[in-house]
């Protein structure tokens, strides 16, 4: 009887020690689910989800504050991926937050630009180059197409240009072929 109690106490102590040690040693910093959600989001940083960027939206989803269908740039595929990650039912994109547009980049008409730096301050990824009273220009490669530079421009010299298919980003198309007449007959 006594031995049994002692053995159990000893076991409890050892397990307690191991658990206590690993809870300190292997502590996960931050919320891993936020990182996972953030990895799915397209990082456009456009704020159409009504949060100031992708990370805040990821936090809001993780805390259950926001829904999974508020990200237009992520599109239907993004919603599906989020639904799978969160283990919730898929729902169509909430169009009150905007619709999915083809990927585009901002373009500054350099003749019209007055060099006010307002767009530079608005750009969430520092993709606009310029200085006060100097012409500004977009670093095309870094532009996420968030459109946040459009409203502050006092002379409306920024336009969004859809990225056209070119020799570099061209993709093989889904093979389409007509079904055989033979098949049609069998069916």
């Amino acid at each position: 009887m006594l031995i049994a109690i002692l053995v159990l106490i000893l076991l409890a102590l050892i397990i307690g020690l191991v658990l206590g040690f690993s809870s300190i040693k292997f502590k996960v910093k931050g919320d891993p689910i936020v990182e996972k959600i953030d990895a799915i989001l397209p990082q456009t940083q456009c704020g159409q989800c009504s949060y100031p960027g992708c990370k805040p939206y990821a936090k809001a989803i993780a805390s259950g504050e926001a829904d999974i269908n508020q990200c237009p740039p992520g599109g239907e595929d993004g919603v599906k991926a989020l639904a799978e990650l969160m283990g919730v039912e898929y729902k169509p994109l909430d169009e009150s937050h905007g619709i999915t547009k083809p990927k585009s980049v901002a373009f500054i008409d350099e003749d019209t630009c007055i060099g006010c730096t307002l767009c530079i301050q608005a750009c969430p990824v520092d993709a606009i180059l310029g200085a006060a009273k100097q012409m500004h220009t977009i670093i095309e490669k870094e532009c996420t197409g968030c459109e946040l530079c459009l409203p502050p421009c006092p002379v409306d010299c920024i336009t969004m240009e859809v990225i056209e298919e070119n020799a570099e980003n061209w993709k093989w198309k889904y093979p389409v072929y007509s079904l055989s007449k033979k098949t049609a007959k069998v069916q």
């Binding site: 990370k55 969430p124 870094e142 996420t144 980003n169 993709k171």
Partner: peptide, 22 residues
């Protein structure tokens, strides 16, 4: 393959955007 490659590219771009935003 080309769908996957374009997905990888989009992921790379997103990673760059995240880094720049942070």
């Amino acid at each position: 393959k080309s769908e996957l490659i374009s997905e990888f590219r989009a992921q790379e771009e997103a990673d760059v955007a995240r880094e720049r935003n942070e």
